[in-house]
Design a protein around this nucleic acid. Sequence first.
RNA 1: GCGGACGUGGUGGAAUCGGUAGACACACAGGACUUAAAAUCCUGAGACCUAACAGUCGUGCGGGUUCAAGUCCCGCCGUCCGCACCA
Length: 934
Amino acid sequence: MAPKKKAGNGAVKAAQTAGKSAKTTSTAAAPTANPASGEPIERYNAPKCEQHWQKVWEERGIFNASNEDDRPKCYVLEMFPYPSGRIHMGHVRNYAMGDVLARYKRARGFNVLHPMGWDAFGMPAENAAMQNKVHPGKWTYDNIAAMRAQLKSMGLSLDWSREFATCDVEYYQHQQKLFLDMLQEGLIYRKSSKVNWDPVDNTVLANEQVIDGRGWRSGALVEQRELTQWFFKITEFADDLLRALGDLKDWPEKVRLMQANWIGKSEGMMLRWALDKKTAPKGFNELEVYTTRPDTLYGASFMAISPDHPLALVAAETNKELADFSDECRKLGTSAEAVETAEMRGFDTGLKAHHPLNKDWLVPVYVANFVLMDYGTGAIFGCPAHDQRDLDFANKYGLKVTPVVMPKDEDPKSYQITTESYTGDGLMINSHELNGMRPKDAFAKIADKLSAQKLGKAPVGKRQTNFRLRDWGLSRQRYWGCPIPIIHCDECGAVPVPAKDLPVILPDDATFDKPGNPLDRHPTWNKADCPTCGKAARRETDTMDTFCDSSWYFARFTDPNADTPTNKAAANYWLPVDQYIGGIEHAILHLLYARFFTRAMAKTGHLDGKLQEPFKALFTQGMVVHETYERSSNERSPTLSQSAPSPQKPEWLTPSEIRIEGEGEGRKAFALDGGDEIKIGSIEKMSKSKRNVVDPDDIIGHYGADVARWFMLSDSPPERDVQWTDKGVQGANRFAQRLWRLIHDAEQVIAAHDTPMPDKLSDCAQELHARAHRAIHAVSRNIELLRFNVAVAQIYEFTNILSSAIQISAQHADNTEYLSMDWALREATEFLIQAISPMMPHLAEECWARLGYNTLATDQPWPAIEEALLVDDMITIAVQLNGKRRAELKIARNANKDETEAAAMALEPVIRALDGRQPKKIIVVPQRIVNVVV
RNA sequence: GCGGACGUGGUGGAAUCGGUAGACACACAGGACUUAAAAUCCUGAGACCUAACAGUCGUGCGGGUUCAAGUCCCGCCGUCCGCACCA
């Protein structure tokens, strides 16, 4: 077997000459030949071939999964898209990855479920309705039709028979049933809570939709409003959601960590402090705080409560200054920037509290801007020495700082805290009975003591676990979402719509010309009779958060036509999803909500209780990034700057409006319209705002889906960002064309397809045979590990090997050495086609047909690997002198230590380097390395 | 501030266990074919030194463990991401 790249020009010529006389044996729609050009082979016409094979796959329905099948199951799922109207390169990358796995698993004999649907409810449809006077439903379904066609042009192995959109009544009616059952089970409740309210759009905004205190769309100052809303009791599962993260071994560590932080479990105590009767307002006898450091109780020097704490509200009624202070705190907002720059501020209420461990010790109560109302009790005790915030606060207001924990090697007499709090382990000091203890033990002692101590009739303290996770508010004041099936009756309150009256269907004749909720102002829809008493009542006009829709769609896919939310048999068969693939941006919300739904659905009997988690394995792929092109301000056309909302806003150009000249340092961009030089900006995620987008349609139309897919899979590790470049996609195209030519060349030298394996292979045939098996082995492994870029590299390597073998073989056709080569070449060629099949499925079909088959490459079982071929009899190991490589040693794999050492010592470079000296030590690791120490 | 990830040629990146660093690709250079270009094919290449052989250095920086470190340990530096007053 010749090493790669060693075939001389003679071989090339031989291969090309052979090519000229080739006859096409392809039974498939062969690309248009161009006999006039004299080219030996017509170029592979991807767009034309791809449509053909997509039709064949669809007609045969080969990707439609059966719910009854003896083969092992494999559920491959990519996060379903929002139907914005166009797919983008991020989708191409995401779905290409999932498709490789789905097709590979299918070839490995799995019953594969690979469905697709649409996350179809949401605000953009309503905004479109407002702006373009088109109904959200029509807008959405038109977008779905357009995107479906685009996805189909990618040639994905999807089971389209299971497709649905979450805005289909057939889907959301079941979601309403889930709502009712969860309500019944106590997993949904109603309460009043604070929301971000946009007074111009008359709607609630999510936190991420509030930018610098203003609505992202209207620009209006957002108000905090008290609204009665429905909540999922996700906190009921907080502990389990946290615990089970440990079982999700096939999830990225990063995502598990993010979720764990989000859930934010902390172990501490509730502590009740008696208020000094002389200072406390009427009705307030105590102040309850939550703390994780009861051990530092002797270091307490103040208490602080939120401006919204009931005690603060009452105190403010009789204290104008305090009321003003509280108002100011509320205005400051809670955005990240506001919090970071905000000064720590407090207001001494004049109230005092009795220290739980010493009644005579009075502690001042402040209202402070950094205390959150909705965590713990909205009140804290401050121990400045061991909490940085408390220390900053104490220093500002001249409060006492008493260290109560000290690092082991410090002197308690001189140990002081000034500007840096100490949060580490150590020994207790200044703490009476706790002195000398470790903080951990002091915690336990105080917890026991205060749990036994009474204040009034109840214990002073009690151990408590707190979570940062809050219940999930699901009400949205919008039209385009799943209606909440509730009727409000003046007599009976909030009454669930009886299951027999479902679905509650969105009215088609809503109006979108005004801001606010169209359901609210609908003339008839919101009128309904109370299911309990029959009196006239009002229908709930809030709809569900769209995150509800995506929290159980994976379960619905297992039987999308079931007349209950799930068909438990089907769900039991398919779930959990074996591999889920999507963007890291959903690390918390979507994935946490889906995990919650899985538990809630088990509790309401819609899923089997044995199903712990919805997604067995999760993979988060990186983004597709691209250069940006910015027209500098002095070149901006005057019309554009007038229409731009801000004169400072840069004008971005799309890659298709740009012409690039030069390479490397001298690389420059020019606008196609005027020829102006354009600044090449930073590489960023493809986005509409920066206009650095490449349209998948253009790429697929020009190069074909296979090339787009291949490029998205090669080079960059899938979890990292990939940069879209013209050179890159051209390289992928070159490879596709090269493969096509290679198959053409191979046709001339390979055995007929029913040729049995010869009894004995010549050396070079045996070598190729082994290389083919090793390549498939390596590709398999890397696909299973989702390391597509490495799998691609191995395919390149194998292609180089096969290409050389074909050329050499063509050159030596008469040499008896090469007699069994035709069989090995055929095997290798078929293996190569099968290896690319999951990634470039259309090209694989075209090549397969060209080899004389009328079966589908897609239907071929994955090549069976002969384990014996994976190891070589002869291996090359390195020989080092003092740890530096000095020579290579080719030796039998099974050579023992002595043989290896002897062979190594006989090597010329070793003898030369030793120069007659005796080696101090010789390390021999058979099959790995020899290291001679001089 | 807290938590995490990552630093390898001109570039994207390879390198199950500590065992030949730079696979594979892109870009580049030279050559073949061509009237020419495109396409294709061949060859070269981490840096330094050398005519060549040989040699020296080399995985962000500084230490350490080891016969042997991109990989393990300690300390820095840089980049990116997440959370953000969570008591």
